[in-house]
Amino acid sequence: MMYILLFDFAFILQKMGLIGVIFLITLTIAAYSTYGERKIAAFLQDRIGPDRAGPFGLLQPVADGVKMFMKEDFIPANANKGLFILAPGIFMFVACMTSAVIPWGTTLTLFGANIDLQVTDINIGILYIMGFVSLGVYGIMIGGWASNNKYSLYGAIRASSQMISYELAMGLSLIAIVMMTGTLSLRTMAEQQSGFQWNVLYQPLGFLIFFICALAECNRAPFDMAECETELIGGYHTEYGSMKLGFFLFAEYINMFVSCAVISTVFFGGYNFPGLDPSWLGGLMGPIVLFSKIFFFIFVFMWIRWTLPRFRYDQLMHLGWKGLIPLAIVNMLLTGAITLWLGK
């Protein structure tokens, strides 16, 4: 009955190694996303961005990290101490957990051993991602509440109501994909899209809805209601400083990285690209293709952020509940009807 415990030691070691590598890559990408964000923002605004720390400012994330660690670790007097410290940890943990089901490639041949480039291929991968995305709210809510500051609380409530509203449309757009592919496993989905049979060609509306919801879930502009520097002085992390603030910001970039990975896998063929076999270079071609797609989407996320102004809160809710959810339901119904028609 207990299938999960029947694995041998070498298998566990291999998975631990993979988790370690993915964790390191995730952290590096998150760190360099901050640099990329600033550089891209600068370039879009006719500036040059950070260029002092190292060549082209490439050491800027290191400098930022050192700064974060060196700052005074301050806890407000009337804050709920335990939860105040716990909140960034929860947020970070949830952000890192999501990457476990993403297939980074087929198999990697290293020193004669075949390594499966996916931490775990559970047959409900998409639901697992939805589950952890829905848990991401807690870090924000607890952090905002434990700060004992009304602006933090406003920010937390805005952020969490935004996230639960957009989760619905996100889930509905994914249901259409699931109906079309007939699987919940991300690995199977990626395999089905070999060559140029990408899901986005069959589900353009679903992709659009999912993309908008992903922007909202990551709390990024034009949906950065949670932060609102202008009216909420930073939102839920107003009271946070030093590395605790760093954790929040870092986790947001990890969220962005993971959502880009999910978008690439679910809609844009994952590790597949027409003409490039993912098993080339001993299996390294798959990750290379997938990561180029991920970087492209990270760039699009940033590009959108530095182009569009922020939504007003009622516009945001209007778009979520009266715009995207009905659209996602229509998309779902259409997909169902068409699959039924084609299947019979």
């Binding site: 639901l127 589950g131 829905s134 848990l135 969490s160």
Partner: peptide
């Protein structure tokens, strides 16, 4: 071995109702 139930349990209870 009821992964679906586990995840749905998390999504519905922990992810929505408790929020």
């Amino acid at each position: 071995n009821a992964q679906f139930l586990a995840v749905v349990h998390l999504i519905v209870y922990a992810g929505a109702i408790m929020v």
